[in-house]
Design a binder for these strands. Structure first.
Length: 312
RNA sequence: GGCGCCAUAGCCAAGUGGUAAGGCAGAGGACUGCAACUCCUUCACCCCCAGUUCAAAUCUGGGUGGCGCCU
């Protein structure tokens, strides 16, 4: 029998945290975060990481795993969270997975096999060299000659993805597109229930604006200053996170604080939009409306859906 | 009341006779080891009316609205 899994997804600031805690309470289980930024230690305010008092005693996993300058990939996420899921199942608990990082979510429930396509820093830096010296068009042509399918799918301007495809080919000797066939195929490891939280766009945007303001008044600048003092530079993936890169720019006197806040809000809105796009493409998601004024209704809807699907 | 200037997308703004740059904001989309990343697509018949012209956002006249100065 397949193991059960409850997944709660949706854009930033819809209220995933609240709903996931309540759901976990209901199921007497634990929460696994699927968020690419909350894995970093010391990045709390800007990532809207769940606070101790919000957890209500529910254990949370996949948070605070690495330092901001450490590498962490989807593959790491898949294996580490997979182990936790297994452990919970052993204890007869149905894990609640909550997060907004679509790729992480998909790594668990779809057939994304990362095991045969490793990464190689040497190849990577060589490709970066090539990008510098020859340019993105040349890289894309290289890809075209070895893997026309992938080249057709990846835009010339998307140098990052072009390089990844080349990297995979160089390491494995097999075209990137070869491992790309069953992207949206359902994994047969789990019986999962996928819940998407949605909210009126304008309302969500207002909440985002408000949340950014709150972050700043709750000490985001100090948080970034501390990270900066610890030597974490702007080029790190972690510091590319929204809130961090903009405050860094402010601290480096490139923009005013006002401007920084404006851009943070905009970037967060764009993130939310991209998250919607990602999840909308997945027709297995049951969308549940969130009304912040009446969160109880949302919780009720979630509960009903869970019993409907035989989880409760 | 008179004189002058201006009127282009939600905002900023280029274009001074040949069929509407660009930026910002928005919308849609892609995404298999950096994913809060990276990337793609998309958004106006130029205030209104009349005229000149093969052709007008661009020229002319009138109207309307705004800004400035003067009385």
């Amino acid at each position: 029998m397949k193991k059960k899994l409850v997944m709660i997804v949706g854009p930033t600031a819809v209220g995933k945290t609240r709903v996931s805690v309540e759901t976990a309470k209901l199921l007497d289980t634990e929460v696994i975060s699927a968020d690419a930024m909350q894995i970093y230690i010391g990045m709390n305010i800007g990532t809207a990481k769940i606070r101790e008092d919000e957890k209500q005693g529910i254990p949370h996993h996949m948070i605070d795993l690495v330092y901001p300058d450490e590498k962490f990939t989807v593959s790491d996420f898949k294996t580490q969270s997979g182990a936790i899921i297994e452990q919970l199942h052993l204890n007869d608990k149905i894990p609640v997975i909550a997060g907004g990082t679509g790729l992480y979510i998909n790594s668990l429930i779809y057939k994304l096999n990362f095991s045969n396509t490793i990464s190689d820093d040497r190849v990577r830096s060589e490709l970066n060299q090539l990008l510098e010296t020859k340019g993105k068009v040349t890289l894309h042509r290289m890809l075209e000659s070895i893997d026309p399918i992938a080249a057709g799918k990846i835009h010339v301007n998307n140098a990052k993805r072009v390089m990844r495809a080349l990297e995979v080919y160089h390491i494995t000797g097999r075209p990137f597109s070869a491992s790309n066939t069953d992207f949206r195929d359902e994994s047969d490891d789990y019986h999962f229930v996928l819940i998407g939280l949605e909210m009126d766009r304008q309302l969500l945007y207002n909440r985002i604006d408000q949340r950014v303001d709150d972050m700043v008044s709750n000490g985001l600048i100090d948080e970034v200053m501390v990270l900066r003092a610890q030597g974490y530079g702007r080029n790190l993936t972690s510091m590319q996170g929204i809130g961090y890169k903009e405050i860094m720019q402010y601290l480096d006197h490139e923009i005013t604080l006002e401007e920084s806040v404006r851009i943070m809000k905009r970037n967060t809105r764009r993130l939310a939009k991209r998250q919607f796009t990602w999840f909308k493409a997945d027709n297995r998601i049951k969308w549940i409306h969130v009304d912040p004024i009446n969160i109880d209704q949302t919780l009720k809807d979630v509960q009903n859906y869970l019993s409907e699907r035989g989880i409760l």
